[in-house]
Amino acid sequence: MNETKAATGTMHPHTGMTTRHDAWWLAPLMVATGFTLFIVYATYRAFENNFYEIGAIISPFYSPKIVLDWFPFSPALLILWMPAGFRATCYYYRKAYYRAYFLTPPACGVKVYGNKGYTGERAFPFVLQNLHRYFFYLAVLVLTILWYDAFKALIEPKFHLDLVTVIMFINCFLLSGYTFGCHAYRHLAGGGLNCFSENESTKQRFKIWEFVTKLNEHHMGWAWCSLFSVGFTDFYIRQVCANVFPNPTFF
């Protein structure tokens, strides 16, 4: 038996940030990288104001296309704040960016970065996270339009299926799985009830709640897949508009 290390610290015998041996920094690093790449790309595209529409096809970043005389900037800016707000206040994304960007904490059992004056979600700005359910309503609105866009791409000018349409449908599917697995919706659908069996209406809401719960269990997966798919859909449409990628027709 030999003494190896003297303990320090006023509160407890823990030295440094953590005594974890594993690569705890890997997950937050990957998350931060993924988010940053997406944000950079999305910002660039939002301001590009070009290559987003070809025939009946429209990029999800720009749909619905609202052109206002008094608004000189890209029309994407009128739309993107809604899904962006939905994701920014999403319970999963909150976890991910509080860890990856704010380092509160970077990983479990690892010391937070700066511990003065932490107020969590009790005070401005993060108290605004409580608006999540309003963004959910807006996200449903945008999602409806994206489904409309996908069907429109399918039937205009005549019923046909091309690669972009397939991508748009996959994107809508993934976005729906993400949107309807939302924690706020889970609460609104039935989670707020204390007794599911009370009457017919609560029994119906229980069924919806059960379904939402199933989606919600994989909310993280839906969040990343739909984030990727919405970016990829826009990217592919941009490249088709710019004549870089082909858009083969299946029938």
Binding site: R94, E121, H183
Partner: peptide, 26 residues
């Protein structure tokens, strides 16, 4: 409101209670 749902509680729970998703967020 102090909870910022970073889910470490859920990660360490030996009883696999989904503390964040099923208790705190609701």
């Amino acid at each position: 409101g102090f909870c910022n749902i970073t889910k470490c509680c859920t990660e360490v729970c030996p009883e696999d209670i989904h503390i964040t998703d099923n208790a705190i967020i609701p």
